[in-house]
Write a protein that binds this DNA or RNA. Structure first.
Lengths: 300, 300
DNA sequence: GCAGGGCCACAACCTTCAGTTATGCAAGTC
DNA sequence: GACTTGCATAACTGAAGGTTGTGGCCCTGC
């Protein structure tokens, strides 16, 4: 089965028509038509049945679908990888971080770095953890910064600093005296909370803790990022459990925060490929991030 | 990156030379040379450095290697699948089983089946479990018979019958009186044993039981299939733990056997694809296998 | 040191096939 | 019944991929 046929098959399935597929592949409709016929002839069975002038995938086609889509995806990844490899070393510092860290930590670190190395060019991305790993493996970026426990992948993981899970609340929720003390998790029972989407490892873990409370906290709203949670809390929608960086956003003015009394730290990790050792600029950058993070977490 | 280039890259890496690659792909050496240059030009970096007239993969090439080989493999699987799909329903009964079952159970069942359906054509394979799953998923065969606990794969698994793990020994190892009783596992301590290769799930499980004995049994010889173990035991090389079908090979003349006293059964499974329901012949075949197996296991 | 063989690159030429435009036909839509 | 949408066919074109022939480089063995 020629790659050409595979692409065409995929294009027809995604667009739903041969004409659409032809457009997707930037070829004319007759070219697509001919190619599809050749593919079917070579295979020995029909991929689509022509019913009332339309293409309808056959049973066999549906059996092939998953495999073909997997191959297409891997070819795309290969494409991305080779594209990035050809422009290797074009940029000394390519960093991706989660949205929570993109708020101030990473930009601040970049600013500091560019004072030390004025000429340096920098590329920044914000991505969620799964995409981040992919991006690193495909050489699109060189360093990832995340609060997630991104296991398994064959990537190096270096802890930069540790912090506490924080509870944030609308202004004037707690008294000044209370703010000093960690909040016992039981105090969250029955409270209105902003939930974090399931794909988040930390959020997931916290969620299972919360589920054991009785009455369980109400989480009518669920968001993907800690930043959204922060904003909603600031607007009085409820409490939220967030990382210590998000909690300190805006200098901690918009919301109140208290550490959660929990035997579990939030860890800021730097992740990178094991094969390519970090260069001097990258190492210095990580040093700055660590320094800034520690200083930030020291503030109340 | 064109598929053509991918194949060429792979061929060069496996054969070690451009000429070899050209032969592998059934093209002339200059064609391969030109294609490789085009590939490198399109990529923007060299895949091989020409040193002393030879091709030496560059660092980048090695980074691509794994991904490319994965794609090649998946393309091959797709090829196999489509090849099998085009000759669909050509044969009503295509069965694959492990070597232990190919000894007598499966051939006997086929003989019986062909008395019931005289005209039926049958295809038999013997494969180890991992390959068996692959073969089923690629529509090369329709039914697999195995004693392994082939989990995860999205294949149906139907237990046909249960038996006991058997200990086999050279003739006259045990007294006639002993033969009736199950052998306690502790009796194997310090005994010379024939081991089963690690990839076997059952063998693996037994191995971990044996390892806890003290003194642990000696397993100087390790074999891949139960049949080999049987032959070695018959030649007096030691004891072996085998499935109940292998134990009864040759009518149980060449070796002595005793059930092992163990809270774990050997299960004979039929596995098949969930999407394609079994036809009448296939169902009848499984019925025969079950019947034969139960009868066989009832004998001492 | 020189002949020979293995391996890669270049050149000139040829064939095939994927692409094009133009057109036809069937079926649904208003 | 006119119009639109979508697939198939026909005739043509160009580029890509193939061929053979040749030359240079390097190692090897006499």
């Amino acid at each position: 089965m020629r790659l050409r046929y595979i692409e065409l098959f995929h294009a027809v399935l995604t667009t739903g028509s041969l004409t659409g597929a032809a457009n997707l592949l930037n070829i004319s409709q007759p070219a697509a038509s001919k190619a599809l016929q050749q593919a079917e002839q070579q295979l020995g069975f029909a991929l689509f049945s022509r019913v009332r002038g339309r293409l309808l995938p056959t049973e066999q086609a549906l059996l092939l679908r998953q495999r073909i889509e997997k191959i297409i995806q891997e070819l795309n990844e290969l494409q991305r990888l080779t594209a990035n490899m050809s422009l290797t070393d074009s940029c000394p510092l390519r960093v991706t971080c989660t949205p929570a860290l993109a708020q101030s930590l990473v930009p601040d670190a970049v600013t500091l770095l560019r004072k030390i190395f004025p000429g340096t060019s920098v590329e920044l991305f914000t991505q969620h953890s799964a995409v981040m790993c992919e991006s690193l493996l495909l050489h699109e970026t060189d360093i990832g910064l995340t609060l997630q426990d991104t296991g398994r992948q064959n990537l190096c993981r270096e802890p930069l600093c540790r912090g506490q899970v924080m509870v944030i609340a609308p202004p004037d929720w707690w008294s000044v005296a209370e703010l000093k003390r960690p909040l016992p998790i039981t105090a969250l029972a029955g409270q209105p909370m902003i939930g974090i989407a399931v794909q988040d490892a930390l959020g997931n873990m916290l969620q299972s803790h919360l589920a054991q409370l009785s009455p369980a906290p109400r989480t009518p709203v669920r968001v993907q990022t800690y930043q959204l949670a922060h904003s909603l809390v600031a607007q009085g929608e409820g409490l939220a459990l967030v990382d210590p960086f998000t909690a300190r956003r805006d200098g901690g003015k918009a919301v109140q925060m208290r550490p959660l009394d929990l035997r579990m730290d939030v860890v800021l990790y730097a992740i990178y490929r094991p094969d390519s050792p970090l260069n001097a600029v990258q190492k210095r950058f990580l040093g700055l991030v660590r320094q800034l993070a520690q200083r930030l977490l020291a503030t109340v």
